[in-house]
Design a binder for these strands. Structure first.
Length: 260
DNA sequence: ATGACATATGAGATATGA
């Protein structure tokens, strides 16, 4: 079972690229972030014609997440619990059948948090506390669980080409990295590191500006965190960086895992 | 260098991203 995550930076602006990649990679579940449209504006038909079911938690202009899947999802949750006043569409979760069992998959768009001296950073850290609390609850189910998405966290210096340039940034602040480690300390594993080891140069995002892609000035901020039950089935993981070379690319590329 | 790109909104300039 292939599960992928991809921040596509507007689904409508990225349809040609998105369809091409789905045809190439054929993920069983695809977690999308930053779709930047409301539910009824999501181009579901294009994906349904490729054989996918579509679950959307959309928002106009900003944010928005979705789950595409070859099998229909159940037990769908839209929005991260813990704050009824939070109107930003950054979380959708569902359960998908897999080999006489099931995998619970979440598509996560964690807040950026910049600038760090503002309420935006506080919102990020609050959101990470809520994610930790929800993950703790979900782990009690002892299911195969995959929390996939754009975490907007550079976990370690090895995850940036120039870590010194990110010091002080909300993506690399000690508070953000600590909150990410708390997720790992619940028993979740970082699928890319689990599968590929502590090798440098594994990036998932390159800024559009200043020739970041050409200079390979990248960072690793898109992650799939796995419950112990899912980690038991982890067979492979990869970053599809070739997609960054395509016409009109997102600034993020897809990250894929395979569970057997 | 608070800009470079890219996107959405809405029809020019601004907000957001990371």
């Amino acid at each position: 079972m292939k599960i992928a995550t991809w921040n596509i930076n507007s689904v409508k602006a990225r349809m040609d690229t998105a369809v091409a990649w789905v045809k190439e990679a054929e993920p069983d579940v695809l977690c999308l972030q930053e779709i930047k449209c409301e539910d009824q504006a999501f181009p579901s038909e294009a994906f349904e014609s490729l054989g996918y079911n579509v679950l959307v938690h959309g928002q106009k202009t900003y944010n928005g997440v979705a789950l595409l899947s070859k099998s229909p999802g159940s037990d769908v949750r839209r929005g991260l619990p813990g704050d009824e006043t939070d109107a930003q569409a950054r979380y959708i979760e569902a359960v998908f059948p897999f080999d006489h069992m099931a995998v619970r998959v979440a598509s996560i768009y964690l807040p950026n948090g910049n600038p760090p001296d503002t309420d935006k950073f506080k919102y990020k850290l609050d959101w990470m506390r809520r994610l930790e609390a929800h993950a703790r609850e979900m782990l009690k189910l002892e299911e195969q669980l995959v929390l996939a998405g754009d975490y907007n966290v550079i976990p370690s210096p090895i995850d940036a080409r120039h870590p010194e340039k990110w010091v002080g940034d909300a993506l690399f602040r000690p508070e953000s990295r600590s909150a990410f480690r708390r997720l790992l300390n619940l028993g979740l594993s970082d699928a890319i590191r689990q599968s590929l080891g502590d090798v440098p140069g594994l990036y998932t995002f390159w800024d559009y500006q200043a020739g970041a892609w050409q200079k390979n000035n990248g960072i690793r901020i898109d992650h799939l965190l796995l419950s112990p039950q899912a980690t038991d089935h982890l067979a492979a993981a990869r970053i599809d960086r070739h997609v960054r070379e395509w016409e009109k690319p997102s600034d993020h590329v897809p990250v894929v895992i395979e569970l057997n």
